[in-house]
Design a protein around this nucleic acid. Structure first.
Lengths: 187, 187
DNA sequence: AGGCATTCTGCAACAAGGTGCAAAATACTG
DNA sequence: CAGTATTTTGCACCTTGTTGCAGAATGCCT
């Protein structure tokens, strides 16, 4: 539903080829809206066909040949229209939480290893976000950058939350294991 | 990928019919793994066919007739096995953040209304979670409940984060509008 | 009993996301 | 220049999630 708009936004920030977009979806925009290169190419095709973007003219258009896209006025209008519509915020969908709930009925085998693994991942991500913030947004400047910084700060806040929660969870799970009757290992 | 395991977990907590499951997916489990009734019926069919669950015998099995399911040993084994496997935590996918990013290039028309709307939603959800916590988990009891409480606390933490971030965002967007050159309204 | 709403189950079609694979151009290497 | 790797684009297919609709049992109302 939103992939086309993610692409339009990315292309407005900077006209790009499919592969360049893919790279940018591995950073930046991809931090809150991920997409694979096949999704991106498919969507570029649709957007071009719909007259929302166009390929910049190149000498020899061919299959393995790089193709750059830019947003047409219709595309910008569509994005503006989408952005001013109401959006439903869809509920949480988190496998780790589901897993905890499952652990409550089938045992906590390997649970703390998993929690530790996730903790490491979120700590790393948090560090990376913080590096980006102090590198790119040291001095809050124009309105555009202030909005982008706001988005980044959401990422930082979320990762901060997960780190804190995972630490709490590890302590709790450890404590459950300790206090369990007879010291039976969790299972 | 995880819906069958969500259903197995729910059925282990309490054998249920499709509609009862649907109701429980609107609360409880649904707070972190939502599903519609069609998904649930489809999956129940597959799980039954795969020998992981079975329908409790009823006098007159027929189409509009209630059908209760319980988990078979194979189902419990599958769930235990899934729960002890490593899970990839998939990245954030949030339309509101994407929208902010879009607003940076096409204008902030109606942005603060949207932020306010989301703020109200998250505040309400937070209140509800907190009510559940003090109602159901006032005294932390057996290991199962302690794990379920941990899951609930993740929900509380996430909603708390969103409320804080949305308040920050509203202040920031308001400030951008104020300081913009010549007092031009945000667009 | 007839009619109507509700409960409960389910099909069919569609939309979106993801995986695997491959073809065409280009760059590198001996 | 032949062979191999990389870059860039793309197709076909599969899974997951969503929407719309409908059939069958049940209970209620008059």
């Amino acid at each position: 539903m939103s992939l086309p708009h993610a692409i339009l936004t990315a292309l407005l920030e900077k006209p790009s080829s499919g592969l360049e977009l893919t790279r940018r979806f591995d950073r930046s925009i991809g931090y809150f809206w991920s997409a694979t290169h096949q999704q991106i190419y498919r969507e570029l095709g649709k957007l071009e066909q719909g007259g929302l973007i166009r390929a910049l003219p190149s000498e020899r258009p061919a299959r393995g040949q790089k193709k750059e896209f830019e947003v047409l006025p219709a595309g910008r209008a569509e994005l503006a229209q989408w952005a001013s519509r109401e959006q439903e915020s869809k509920p949480i969908r988190d496998a780790l939480l589901l897993r905890l709930r499952a652990a409550a009925v089938v045992g906590r085998e390997g649970l703390d290893d998993e929690l530790r693994r996730h903790l490491a991942v979120h700590r790393r991500q948090l560090t990376q976000y913080e590096a980006i913030e102090s590198r790119d947004f040291a001095a809050a400047a124009d309105p555009e950058d202030r909005l982008r910084r706001l988005v980044l700060r959401a990422g930082i806040g979320l990762e901060t939350f997960w780190v804190a929660w995972l630490e709490e969870a590890l302590a709790e799970v450890g404590d459950i294991g300790d206090t369990e009757t007879g010291g039976r290992p969790g299972a």
